[in-house]
Design a binder for these strands. Structure first.
Length: 348
DNA sequence: AAACCGTGGTC
DNA sequence: TGACCAAGGTT
């Protein structure tokens, strides 16, 4: 007979093994009555959407240093925030981040709502993030369901239904376990368990506080759960990027429209990305293709980008984009694919 | 409701 | 190289 899985056992484990993270108030301090700043909880949760903890850390420190409060962030210019987000990916998050910050600073008097329904109305805040903010910042007993929780629940219940079909049942399992006491610590504890013990590969079941209640442990199936529907193969698309350098060192760049891929970000003028991209240089010049192409993989396709360069005189006007002075140009402000193209012009 | 939306690490 | 994976949300 298997023992029941209980929140209290996970909380005891969390009290001893909680990860120290820049946005986290640890279990001891929380027991003393401390809670994290809701602004920092919200900001970290947006950054952590489909993004690893190591990738987020430096961005979180940079954002909270430059914009310590939601009012500071709300007052920041769009371009500065987009540049600060560059490299983190999923740029709609940054656009929604600003929308949300301005909404909170304006309509909400600077205070984040504490209830799920209101949180869900905020741009960029879905079921996971609403539950995370409610529980972690306010100790509302809401249930977080992220990839970690799905994996832990699939294993505890030895659920073989593949995702995403299994999402609803796994959510029910997770909700049934959420305690009324210390829901904020509990939410972080399940995710810590998934991140450090109940990992996708080679789970450390020997160290798991829930092993005695885990159906997959009994069945020996932990490592193969959760099941997932097979993914589609990514097609390869081709493209051309035009990197024009003016004789004074300025670079020709173009702000991308808010909608679509890399929306709102700075980038090199270029062709569409498809099977047969058309030549469409942004300024009259002698273009030379580099011998190496920039390769980059997006969420749903591979890109092979031909990089063309040209040196142009001071008095020539571009048809698209605008020249940015060398002193104002930082490659780190570009999304990664654009930075890769730039890096190719700097090598050798 | 399936498709779209980034990136870096790992195996 | 390539496939998989990571604290999802929007349309």
């Amino acid at each position: 007979m298997r023992e029941p899985v209980r929140a209290i056992d996970l909380l005891d484990w969390y009290d001893r093994h909680a990860r120290a993270l820049p946005w986290r108030v640890g279990p001891a301090a929380r027991k003393a009555g401390l809670r994290p700043d809701p602004y920092r909880v919200w900001l970290s949760e947006i950054m952590l959407q489909q993004t690893t903890v190591p990738a987020v850390k430096s961005y979180f420190l940079d954002f909270t240093t430059r914009w310590p409060t939601v009012q500071d962030l709300a007052a920041a210019p769009d371009e500065e925030v987009m540049a600060a987000w560059a490299g983190l990916g999923y740029y709609a998050r940054a656009r929604n981040l600003l929308k949300c910050a301005r909404l909170i600073a304006g309509d909400f008097g600077g205070q984040f709502p504490t209830d799920l329904d209101t949180l869900l109305t905020l741009p960029g805040v879905g079921p996971y993030t609403a539950a995370a903010v409610a529980s972690i910042a306010f100790d509302v007993p809401a249930t977080v369901v992220d990839g970690n929780v799905e994996r832990v629940m699939a294993r505890v219940h030895d659920e073989h239904t593949p995702l995403p079909t299994a999402k609803a049942i796994l959510t029910d399992y997770a909700a049934a376990l959420t305690p009324q006491d210390r829901p904020g610590c509990y939410a972080q504890a399940v995710m810590d368990l998934g991140a450090t013990i109940c990992t996708p590969r080679n789970p450390a079941c020997g160290l798991c506080p829930w092993r005695k209640g885990c159906a997959a442990w009994d069945a020996g199936t932990a490592a193969e759960l959760p099941k997932k529907e097979p993914r589609k193969k990514k097609p390869t698309r081709l493209g051309i990027a035009y990197l024009a350098r003016r004789v004074d060192g300025a670079w020709l760049l173009e702000r991308r429209p808010d909608k679509g891929l890399l929306g709102g970000m700075l980038g090199w003028p270029g062709s569409d990305w498809n099977d047969a991209p058309k030549e469409d240089p942004p300024i009259r010049a002698e273009w030379k293709a580099l011998n190496t192409e920039a390769r980059h993989t997006f969420t749903h396709f591979h890109l092979r980008l031909t990089v063309k360069t040209a040196l142009v005189p001071m008095d020539r006007t571009p048809q698209r984009g605008e020249f940015i002075e060398l002193s104002d140009f930082r490659p780190a402000d570009l999304p990664t694919v654009m930075r890769k193209a730039f890096d190719l012009t700097q090598s050798k």
